[in-house]
Write a protein that binds this DNA or RNA. Structure first.
Lengths: 227, 227
DNA sequence: CCAAAAGTGTTGTTGATACACCCATGT
DNA sequence: ACATGGGTGTATCAACAACACTTTTGG
């Protein structure tokens, strides 16, 4: 990358979450250059002089995955003076939620390899990236209870049990099928489609989709996302 | 201040909340030097090379108020490339909760004047400080519903109605006295003292204090702070 | 017919809400 | 006596947890 356009001493690091079958996973990368060659870490990059941190995070994720318009939220700034040896670098942490069905790795100059890791099988990462990851998971668990951001991890059409398993994975709890159905349907956030699952070896489930317009209307009255 | 010890291009800005009688207020300052002379803004300063952002925020608040060991939480980094004209400066926002009874302004080299403003009477501030303040209020409203951080705004001993008025002010809602009492006492977070209000022109209320030890025990089981 | 997941129904308990009401104290 | 806030009691309603049950579909 062209360092002349970068802000000195400020980087962006991003935890990219995806949901696969029944498990919540994070995309980690091996860096091809710099002092961290060959070690796994969160996807990162420099903040450029003409962009905000949000724009930088969007750009950095796009450069690796070609994913556009993804859900993205700043965590906080990580500022321990010793977090990177030798230099003083402050990093601004982010997390994003992506739909694995849309995802495709793009060849990249700065990254050797990218790989999904289950959230309870994260290896030792560079710098303070384990701390950043832990914080991002905590933040995800909190946010998912306050707003329906979890839908960003699912394909457009999904069954109620897929949704329930997603919440179970993220929150690390078990939910009652019957009660979950009642509660989520009662919120009126979902639109039932005239479609069912295909090619499953059991009774096919109805498919639903999340409706952001309905969400906007409901959000003014306020409703509860505790599960 | 000695700029040779400062990290280039990174500042700290802090919204200091206090609770006075019945209103939630923020401490604003007029800067004595730099491009912002004479305008009101949040308390701010440079991040130093040998300190984390948390330490910097503690130091900056201490330098003005001599308050120590206060509740302090990072908001996020504000990074719009145009947020400060001329230079690229990223600021890390903070908010703190202080007990007005402990508070005393200290003479300061960098600040002409400091003044408490009611949260709905905030003037036009320098840079993006209005945005930072709005964010801090939102964050306070959210956090106060998840954990008993509001106690940091009160004196050590307080009545149940003082506490209720605090929540009403922060959240901008009205609460039912009877139901509030039941709910807060039911949580078992408060320790009833063998003391009553003095010199009030009505029946004296019992005083309570918040017990952090009890909170720690309860927090593991989880409990609900929605009001 | 069986396995597996989809989907419905029932019941007891808890907690929120909206009140009405009585108590203590200073002016 | 009355104003002001302190403090108690109660009836109603909505939400939740636990669990049993029926339905659909592929193999």
């Amino acid at each position: 990358m062209n360092n002349s356009t970068a802000v000195d001493g400020i980087t962006i690091d991003c935890a990219i979450f995806g949901f696969n079958k029944a498990s919540l996973e994070v995309l980690l990368v091996q860096h091809a250059e710099g002092e961290s060659i060959g070690k796994w870490g969160l996807l990162g990059g420099y903040l450029r002089k003409d962009e905000s941190a949000d724009e930088a995070a969007q750009r950095i994720v796009y450069e690796l995955t070609t994913l556009d318009n993804i859900y993205l939220e700043q965590l906080k700034a990580f500022t321990d003076p010793k977090r990177v040896s030798e230099r003083r670098v402050v990093t601004i942490g982010y997390y994003t939620l992506v739909n694995r069905e849309d995802y495709n790795i793009k060849a990249s100059q700065t990254v050797i390899e990218a790989k999904w890791y289950k959230i309870n099988e994260i290896p030792d990462l560079i710098f303070d990236h384990n701390e950043i990851f832990d914080f991002s998971l905590m933040q995800l668990q909190n946010r998912v209870r306050q707003a329906p951001i979890g839908f960003n991890l699912l394909p457009e059409k999904f069954t109620l049990l897929q949704l329930m398993h997603l919440y179970e994975e993220i929150l690390g709890i078990e939910l009652d099928k019957s009660n979950f159905r009642r509660k989520i349907l009662h919120m009126k956030l979902l639109v039932a489609l005239d479609e069912k699952q295909q090619d499953v070896s059991h009774r096919a489930a109805k498919l639903y989709k999340f409706d952001p317009d309905i969400y906007k209307k409901l959000t003014e009255k306020g409703f509860n996302f505790e599960f």
